[in-house]
Amino acid sequence: MSNLITVSPSPHVHTDESVQKIMYRVVVAMIPALVWSVVVFGFDALRVTMIAIAASVGFEYLVQRYIMKVKPSVTDGSALITGMLLAFNVPANLPWWIIIIGAFVSIGIGKLSFGGLGTNIFNPALVGRVFLLISFPVQMTSYPAPAGSGVDAVTAPTPLGLLKEGLMNGQPISEIAGNLPAATDLLMGTTGGSLGEISALMLIIGGIYMLIRKVITWHTPVAVLGSMFVVAAIFWMIDPEAYIGPAYHLLTGGAMLGAIFMATDMVSSPMTGKGQLIYGVGIGAITMSIRLFGAYPEGISFAILIMNAFTPLINNAVKPKRFGGMK
């Protein structure tokens, strides 16, 4: 049978690209940030990441094998990414059982209940993360102190948390500013925060790698960060005492992680460049409104999930430029 000649419709050649290759490139892009978080938080960061990956891949296999009764597709690397992203979004000292719950929600509810890879509406890692944030608010917001920060405390607040707390207490920015970490610290990531979000620099390195390897396009990250910058700048110019400068917003919290790794998730983001710009601006605007006026210090997870829901609408409304003009 194998020596029979093959007949198939054209085309008869195919690119070397595959889903696996794309997925593993994303994994490679996340490694600088992971390495950095191990440096900052020690072995704990690795422990959380490993548990999250193992649980995600494990749940994907079990659910596909025994509940959906389809051939498990764990080798495509998508569950690996979900696990890593989930780990990136939680504190390094999170108990193991919470991570496993998070992985279950991510994979089981966020991804497989919609049909698996390619059919999920929401970014699975974020579904898990937001579920954990709402269910276990204490554990999810007690961030470990980074190594070498000179702080004796076991936990350290995030820069955005510090800012929000100060503003809630009615302090003006000039007073709070003294307590806030310097911009270089934010860039390098020697502050409190989720495992993978701390170092803007490492995330940007990963982002540039993904851009070069054509895993992502520039549209979404630029739109998210650009719109955040614009919104933050407008409020900062209105009242610099009540609102902090735009650069601070871009470097803190999950802005970089969200813009580069979470919002660019292929499955849950729009298909066209134009659509991705709209989607990115939406994420930036919602993030800033949560940060500036909401109860939470950080809101990019919510913003991305909200815009995920709009993705099908954006895909319907924004069509690529057709050859031969519109009818």
């Binding site: 049978m1 029979l4 000649i5 093959t6 007949v7 198939s8 419709p9």
Partner: peptide, 17 residues
């Protein structure tokens, strides 16, 4: 069989191919 088809597995597409 005298050859092996490889493509979208529906009769309509094979028939057109």
């Amino acid at each position: 069989r005298v050859n092996a088809y490889d493509g979208a597995a529906t009769c309509a597409i094979i028939h057109a191919t």
